[in-house]
Design a protein around this nucleic acid. Structure first.
Length: 903
RNA sequence: GCGCGCUUAGCUCAGUGGUAGAGCACAUCCUUCACACGGAUGGGGUCGCAGGUUCGAACCCUGCAGCGCGCACCA
């Protein structure tokens, strides 16, 4: 701290300018850039890449603030840190956005433009408007290595995606087949199971009756929620064990429209209890029906268009009609025909498209599927703790999913994305696209070309039009961002596997699980060691934040109002460990207030001026006043506690510890206690000791706070002269030794006890003043009887803390009857108040207090007289109880004496 | 239906066996020379309910209720 220069602080803390200033200073100083060949140990995090179309919301703030804290703390711990940033091309979301703009501004669809031109537009859009969120992350203070920013459609990254497809295809894990998939009638693409959100719906259950062919007047009753797909029915199924329907199995029933006879079949899948016990089978439009159809070789009739309209020319009144309108018309039609018996209200779950928010349509189509690789390794890694989930309970959810894996539908009927690297022989195209399934055998035949590079004779080939699911690129993120294909670069060597992944539990399946599998399969190792699942942020009513509800505050607005540090700290301080977070703007306000408190503490210090000739040495600390040793000991404890909390990823607790230290310990106690030493009247030694301790503690405190509030701590460290010009707080390693490492523990403990006694006594005396309505008077005098010996040195401080003119030590003091008094850790203390003494009132007050203490004594006595307790409780607990009892008894004696004196 | 989590002060939440805590809100007072984005004092909880284990339970066990979430679905 020698040669320090302080610059004066402005009157109020204004975070905006300060935060912008330091962020660019860090960038200029290359503080965020990772050196893959440094001597330090590597520490890395890859950012969960936000959608390139994304706008920062509170979830991002929480998530990225946590990563920033981890990264900054790791730097302080002497690690070489890589926080690798980037964005995701987000297939459906981005394409939909550009398509909407195209429609609105030019009235065109993507097909009007053609694939090539449309993709050009998307890239244009991405270059001009994409990546806003990156700027917003910078505003938040994120210490990412921006020189390594990646995009999931960068050429090198795309190459990885293709290579992985090719490898998995060759391995036989990727195949093409005609299956029932989740079809989004708005986005016009297949979706994976994970992109379907089951949503409770109030629906109707329709009860129909079909006449049994050859048995006029006999009917089979069937219940359904989807009469509009009736035209696609190719059977009616009953349970083979169901006696009610046994006689009909093998017969036919009459489908009302278009009129046809369809077989009654028996299948175990049918639940006898539900509805009528008879199920209409529509293989083209229901997954279970498709499977039943396959078991019984039923024909498949597709009666819906890709965009969810009826396709059934035999029923002109329904043909072309939108699916939900058609449902009503179909029901009416049945009613008119006398085939509808009744309609019931019915609650069921319907799958909705995650993106388009409309019910998905199970639909048969030709898609590419993946059988997951390295499933066992991935499941074991989490089960045996090699990869640690926090909170741990998510491991169970993960395990459950891993046990029930279904093949992943990876093709999407979009243009924006990684195009499937498969080419079909032109002359076999028709045959191939209709094939029930395609796999490596077709490649061997030379009908298919599967490769990262296009075929050498492109004129003979046609490329598959589909692109891959966005997550098929995301799952490669941890290693594909660190290297080109086949490159074992220094970066990969130093920073892979990554240390921590911070993400939301809502994407365990979408992303986390798949990354683990991809990590084992393609990088030969787990991709990260710890996964920290963040809270989901809700509003005060417990609703999820959403645009449509308008309950999602704009973090940029919050930062303008309260500063990035205020937002970060406020949010982190209320973030619970394992549950959802209920957000309220007042917590951000508290964060801002806290920054201001910190700032003002330093401003106060500056009034003390520079220490011209710093004589302060902690090694002489035994001679320091108790408050000085106390606050340094507490700082040491804070540092140790934080270390422990970081090890357990208890971020909210860390914020709370930092908050309490500064506000309750440093400002409320230490700063008040040393004010006397900073006055003109104080000796130079006292002044320098106080200022020296302030600087020593504050310099370390700012460093501990730095990961949470990087800007203000950097600013104050510079302004106060704790960090030399041109240097940065954020790049400094944490000091290895505690402040008081060299001092005898007993001396420190004794000083801490004295400080605690003084603070405790100050509270009691203020309380006494308030009770006697003289809280604001400064001219009162307290008299201490039976004072501890050391108190004589501290009466001035105590007087200052309490707001008294004097604290007099007088063992011979004979209190006038009714003198207000309090029993304190340092003795009996009286507050003589001429003219205010009311003996009756004082007796009442004392009596009440005595009652309270008697109850405590009785409680402690009964506990200690219980042999079970004394014998079986740990000795320390019993001892503690004894000490407590002694305290209460001593107090009781004193109070009894006081009461007696009043008589 | 299966699984997971939650239930502590008006609100948001800490607190994994030893005298119930914080912040906000509330009440009263204070514009005293760091901070009103501040200071001081105070009121406010049968720790969801019922059992059990224990010398001792907010904490461990069992059951129940309410809320939330995930998975699977019966058309």
């Amino acid at each position: 701290m020698a040669g320090r220069r302080m610059s004066e602080l402005p009157k109020a803390y204004e975070p905006q300018a300060v935060e912008a200033k330091w962020y660019s200073a860090w960038l200029d100083g290359k503080c965020f850039e990772a050196d893959p060949v440094s001597a330090k140990d590597g520490y890395s995090i890859v950012i969960p890449p936000p959608n390139v179309t994304g706008i920062l919301h509170l979830g991002h703030v929480l998530n990225n603030a946590l990563q920033d804290i981890l990264a900054r703390r790791a730097r302080q711990e002497g690690k070489e840190v890589l926080w690798l940033p980037g964005t995701d091309h987000a297939g459906i979301a981005t394409q939909a956005k550009v398509e909407r703009e195209l429609r609105e501004s030019e009235g065109k669809t993507r097909r009007d433009l053609g694939r090539e031109e449309f993709l050009k537009r998307v890239w244009d859009w991405k270059d001009h408007h994409g990546g806003i969120i990156i700027q917003q992350l910078k505003r938040l203070g994120c210490s990412c290595d921006w020189s390594r920013e990646r995009f999931t459609m960068d050429p090198a990254y795309s190459k990885w995606v293709s290579q992985v497809f090719v490898d998995l295809f060759r391995e036989g894990l990727i195949y093409r087949g005609k299956r029932i998939v989740n079809w989004c009638p708005v986005s016009l693409t297949a979706l994976s199971d994970e992109e379907v959100i089951m949503t409770p719906q109030r629906s109707k259950l329709y009860y129909m009756k079909y006449e049994v062919a050859g048995l006029p007047g006999e009917y089979l009753r069937i219940s359904t929620t989807r009469p509009e797909t009736l035209m696609g029915d190719t059977a009616v199924a009953v349970n083979p064990k169901d006696p009610r329907f046994a006689k009909y199995i093998g017969r036919h029933v009459v489908r009302p429209f278009p009129h046809a006879e369809i077989p009654v079949i028996a299948d175990d899948h049918v639940d006898m209890e539900f509805g009528t016990g008879a199920l209409k089978i529509t293989p083209a439009h229901d997954k279970a029906d498709f499977e039943i159809g396959a078991r019984h070789n039923l024909p498949i009739i597709d009666v819906l268009t890709p965009d969810g309209h009826i396709n059934c020319p035999e029923c002109p009144d329904l043909h072309g009609m939108e699916r939900f309108a058609a449902r009503k018309v179909a029901a009416k039609k049945l009613e008119d025909m006398g085939a509808l018996e009744k309609t019931e209200e019915y609650d069921n779950n319907v799958g909705f498209s995650e993106r388009a928010h409309v019910p998905i349509e199970p639909r048969i189509s030709m898609q590419w599927f993946l059988k997951y690789p390295c499933v066992k390794e991935a499941a074991d890694a989490v089960a045996n703790g090699e990869i640690q989930f926090r909170p741990e309970r998510w491991a169970k959810t993960y395990a459950h999913w891993m046990e029930n894996l279904q093949d992943w539908c990876i093709s999407r009927q979009l243009w924006w994305g990684h195009q499937i690297p498969v080419w079909y022989r032109k002359d076999k195209l028709g045959e191939l696209t209709q094939a029930e399934s395609l796999d490596t055998s077709h490649q061997t035949h030379g009908d298919l070309y599967v490769g990262v590079e296009p075929p050498a004779d492109p004129e003979n080939w046609v490329r598959d039009e589909d692109v891959m699911d966005t997550w098929f690129s995301s799952w490669l993120w941890p290693f594909a961002t660190m290297s080109d294909v086949g490159d074992s670069s220094a970066t990969l060597k130093k920073f892979y596997p990554t240390a921590d992944l911070v993400t939301g539990p809502d994407i365990i399946f979408f992303w986390v699980a798949r990354m683990i599998m991809a990590g084992y399969r393609f990088a030969g190792e787990l991709p990260f060691r710890n996964v920290y699942f963040t809270s989901i942020i809700r509003d005060l009513q417990g609703r999820k934040m959403s645009k449509s509800l308008g309950n999602s505050p704009d973090p940029i607005d919050l930062m303008e109002k309260y500063g990035a540090d205020g937002l970060r700290f406020g949010l982190l301080r209320i973030a619970p460990v394992g549950s959802d977070l209920r957000f309220d703007e007042t917590s951000v306000e508290e964060g801002r207030n806290f920054a201001n408190k910190l700032y003002n503490a330093c401003r106060f210090r500056q009034m003390g001026g520079e220490i011209s000739n710093l004589k302060f040495e902690i090694s002489n600390g035994a001679a320091l006043p108790p408050y000085h040793l106390d606050i340094m000991a507490k700082l040491d404890k804070l540092a140790a506690d934080l270390k422990e909390s970081y090890a357990e990823y208890r971020f909210g607790e860390i914020a709370q510890l930092l908050y309490e230290f500064l506000w309750s310990e440093f400002c409320d106690k230490f700063l008040e206690a040393v004010k006397l030493d900073l006055r003109e009247s104080a000796t130079a030694e006292a002044r320098e000791a106080a200022l020296g301790v302030f600087d020593t503690v504050m310099a370390r405190y700012l460093q501990l706070m730095s990961p949470y509030m990087p800007h203000i701590t950097e600013e104050l460290s510079a302004r106060m002269g704790y960090v030399a010009e041109g240097d940065f707080l954020m790049t400094r390693p944490l000091p290895a030794a505690p402040l008081l490492a060299g001092l005898p523990a007993e001396a420190v403990a004794a000083a801490q006890q004295q400080a605690a006694d003084i603070y405790e006594t100050a509270g009691r005396l203020r309380n006494l003043k308030a009770e006697y309505k003289v809280a604001t008077r400064k001219d009162v005098k307290f008299i201490v009887k039976g004072a501890s010996g050391w108190l004589a040195n501290e009466t001035k401080v105590l007087a200052l803390l309490v707001g008294a003119s004097e604290i007099v030590l007088d063992d011979a003091y004979d209190a006038p009857k009714g003198t207000p008094a309090s029993v304190t850790p340092v003795g009996e203390i009286y507050l003589p108040l001429e003219g205010l003494i009311d003996v009756a009132a004082e007796r009442l007050r004392l009596t009440k207090e005595i009652e309270k203490i008697r109850a405590e004594v009785a409680r402690a006595e009964s506990k200690l007289s219980n042999p079970s307790f004394v014998d079986r409780a740990p000795a320390a607990v019993v001892e503690q109880e004894r000490a407590r009892l002694d305290d209460w008894r001593a107090k009781l004696t004193q109070l009894d004496e006081m009461l007696a004196a009043l008589a």
